[in-house]
Amino acid sequence: MINICFKQSSSKILGFNIEGHAEYGEEGEDIVCSAVSALSYTIVNGITEVLKISVEHIIKDGFLQLSLRDNNLEEIEKCQVLLETMLLGFKSMEIGYGDYIKVQVEEV
């Protein structure tokens, strides 16, 4: 199962952790893992390459973490549309593939 946890404070998303593998299909053919990877990499690239905001992030096999805790309020604000879109996308995936993906929002 893929576990996704968004970190939020005062209605602002400050980061997320994505951990695990969906095991929906065989490696290389797992559409749930592919969808999660595509959406998460797109958002990280949107923040770092399009918005040009430097963020702390770690990417490993079955793990992706991004944190805005060290960023200023203006940068955090600029990232909100992308992060809220990401959360919405993952919640939509969870509706159809709830046995393989779990999304939660944690107040920090």
Rank of each mutant, 00 (worst) to 15 (best):
V32Q: 01
A38C: 08
S34Q: 10
L68V: 05
L83N: 02
I95S: 09
V50C: 08
S40H: 09
T85V: 08
N45K: 04
T48I: 14
G62W: 04
E56M: 12
V32H: 00
A38F: 12
C79Q: 02
Q80P: 14
E74Q: 14
V103A: 00
M93D: 01
G62Y: 05
E77A: 15
E106T: 14
G62F: 03
E94A: 11
N45E: 10
S9P: 05
A38L: 12
F90A: 05
G96V: 01
S10Q: 12
G96A: 06
E75I: 01
G25A: 14
I53N: 02
E27I: 00
L82T: 05
I47L: 01
A38P: 01
E23C: 08
N3I: 07
L82K: 01
N17V: 15
M1A: 15
K12T: 09
E107G: 03
I95F: 10
L82S: 04
L51C: 03
E56P: 07
I95Q: 09
I43A: 13
S37P: 02
L87T: 08
L83W: 00
Q104K: 15
I18G: 00
E56K: 15
K102S: 13
K52N: 13
E23A: 07
G62A: 06
R69G: 07
I43Q: 02
N72V: 06
I2S: 00
F16A: 10
E49T: 13
